[in-house]
């Protein structure tokens, strides 16, 4: 049923595509993570002058399709002569930069809301207790506040990373040759489905499994105190139970 000759001929292209997908994902997720930390603090702020601008940004990004955001940046920006004549135009017109910018703006908005939720969920008593035992402001932030917020946000953050991985498939619409673009090209050349979209699906499925399992390990590490079995020591657990 599957023509293995086509698969072996096209596999190198799929591996190149895989590399591009992973690169796009890593670049946008890491930029999004760095940007969303200060933005989430602003989003959770009690001061409306700080909170509302960040809210407007996340609301607009979360209320419009990523495809439209990508097209506004890639096809839309060259409409303005000032941009076409600016010094950064060679960068701005590259599909790579546009895809990275669109993905980063998108994931930053979702991650900011997620982290802001985790910040708001921090019990006031935790911070008070830390201050009461004499920790400084910076120590409270570094040792109490952020670790707690990160732990609360971790399970949701896994979903965001997986969704972003799936979203990189949209880069195929702006000439970037990632996994889905390779699949579309293979389909156009050979007019076969399992060897084109089927192989791409296998790649995405494997990536999803790897990402979720990695996050499961991270959760086991960071959320160990919530695991009821973790309190049982290894030696005790290994003892046979005589009922």
């Amino acid at each position: 049923m599957i023509n293995w000759q086509i698969v072996s001929e096209t596999l190198p292209f799929f591996l190149d595509g895989l590399w591009i997908t992973l690169l796009l994902l890593a670049l946008s997720i890491s930029a999004g993570l760095v940007l969303s930390i200060p933005l989430s603090v602003a989003r959770a702020s009690a001061n409306p002058w700080i909170r509302i601008p960040v809210w407007s940004y996340t609301y607009v990004i979360r209320g419009t399709p990523l495809l439209v955001q990508l097209f506004i940046i890639y096809y839309g920006l060259p409409q303005f002569e000032a941009i076409r004549e600016s010094a950064i135009w060679p960068v701005l017109r590259s599909p790579w930069f546009c895809a990275w910018l669109a993905f980063t703006l998108n994931t930053t908005a979702y991650t900011t809301e997620m982290f802001a939720g985790a910040i708001r969920a921090t019990p006031a008593g935790e911070i008070e207790a830390a201050r009461a035992i004499g920790l400084g402001r910076l120590q409270v932030l570094r040792d109490v506040f952020w670790p707690g917020a990160w732990r609360r946000a971790l399970p949701q953050y896994c979903n965001e990373v997986v969704q972003m991985m799936h979203a990189t498939a949209l880069a195929s619409t702006v000439t970037i040759v990632e996994i889905l673009r390779v699949a579309r090209d293979v389909y156009t050349n050979y007019l076969v489905l399992p060897e084109s979209f089927g192989i791409a699906a296998a790649f995405y499925l494997t990536l999803t499994i790897i990402l979720t399992q990695t996050f499961r390990l991270l959760e086991r590490h960071y959320l160990r105190h919530l695991d009821p079995r973790a309190s049982v020591s290894k030696a005790a657990a290994a003892e046979p139970i005589h009922a």
Binding site: H166, A169, S172, L180, L193, F197, A200, A201, L205, T208
Partner: peptide, 21 residues
């Protein structure tokens, strides 16, 4: 499990071209 592990654009193109075949 499978559907939530794949990009929707891939599924859409797959259904569109596969349906045509």
């Amino acid at each position: 499990t499978v559907i939530r592990s794949l990009p929707d654009l891939l599924l859409m193109l797959g259904v569109f071209y596969g349906g045509q075949i």
